[in-house]
Design a protein around this nucleic acid. Sequence first.
DNA 1: CCGATCGTTCGGTCCCGGCCGAACTGTCCG
DNA 2: CGGACAGTTCGGCCGGGACCGAACGATCGG
Lengths: 225, 225
Amino acid sequence: MSDITRMASVAALLGDPARANILTALMDGRALTAKELAFAAHVAPSTTSGHLARLTDADLLAVERQGRHRYFRLASPLVGQMLESVMAVAGPEPRPAGKWRGGEALRTARTCYDHLAGRLGVALADSLSQAGHVALTHDGGEVTDQGHHFLRDFGAEPAEGKRVFCRPCLDWSERRPHIAGRLGAALATRCHDLGWIARQRDSRAVTITAEGSEGFAATFGICLN
Amino acid sequence: MSDITRMASVAALLGDPARANILTALMDGRALTAKELAFAAHVAPSTTSGHLARLTDADLLAVERQGRHRYFRLASPLVGQMLESVMAVAGPEPRPAGKWRGGEALRTARTCYDHLAGRLGVALADSLSQAGHVALTHDGGEVTDQGHHFLRDFGAEPAEGKRVFCRPCLDWSERRPHIAGRLGAALATRCHDLGWIARQRDSRAVTITAEGSEGFAATFGICLN
DNA sequence: CCGATCGTTCGGTCCCGGCCGAACTGTCCG
DNA sequence: CGGACAGTTCGGCCGGGACCGAACGATCGG
């Protein structure tokens, strides 16, 4: 099979709505059981089983047995990045002009594999950028010396090593870059540890707690209303 | 239509081998006519016409009329990045153990939208990195002061502006990062202007000329044999 | 004006693959 | 051991969509 046909077959796997639902349900890195995924995909368990078999055969999913359960997760971060890049092309839903639809929570704040995205993610990136803590461009990013101090104080400095910590990740709903990479993961973890954000059940959406609302405003000048 | 179903429909467009061939044929940024694309896709012109209509409807392709021709090109760099990311997940073809197949040229050197990829692209990235001209990580990259001098001498310094010039772009055949972004585009242009590389007809593959072979060895210490 | 070429539209064929329910295997628990 | 639950396999149904050839506009050259 040629490179292109193999690419097509991978893309075809994403091209079915049921499988797309399965994959996006796993995008935050959690591992879910077949039944939970059947619910997410809105199809019968038997149908889901077939989809899961194909996805694992193609190495898009990894599976782990645990008693009578089988836990599925994305096989690698590459898969998550692929999904985000397709979302970026699919673009944001054209706003129905003043009408609010479901899924707004996802737009406000969500996890993108291991970091924060949505309006919160973009706002964080803007805040750090305007304060001079990070230098972001459309194709890379770097933490400034001043930024290192700030992040250490905040408790989110990523491990030492290479100089560049932030890969900009184009947000599919905001169409603006936000902070991924090691820094993005460290920020998300810290916000979670501080109790500023909480994961929602069965969704990549995250809720901003009362403490978070206060904290984001005080520390980053972010107010999402 | 929800975000996920829209993502699925975009992915489904990539999921057909004929359309995948069309899109990859356009990945180097050239604009091709419907007939050329029909040849690339290995299907009848009538079939191609339908595919092209669907791809332009979904804003994956942009079209420009010129007399009785219609020139198609990728609608945005985002589309090219999406294709690369899917290729990265699809992974390299498992080598048939000592047997050389067609498509080797593509693995040696090719264009990836506007920069160089394949073994040449990876070797360039390695060379610049080891010489201390750029600092590359898996999620970003930066040109050093020393690198600025070197690139200016080579004639490939990208336009002034932001500090970070290189987005690492995971190579789907080598599984290693190479240099994309502004720096990648500048390097590719300079190598082309020097006559070191030449585009092949109807392919993203590029050939390394005799001058190029010498130049890459002398300037970068690269020898691809 | 006429042929040649580029591209689209239409009608018809055909097959892939998504879906379900029912039956089956395997695991945990009382 | 027997019931409950997780997950898979199988058979059958059905629709979407990929494909082609032929006929039809559009545009260029002579």
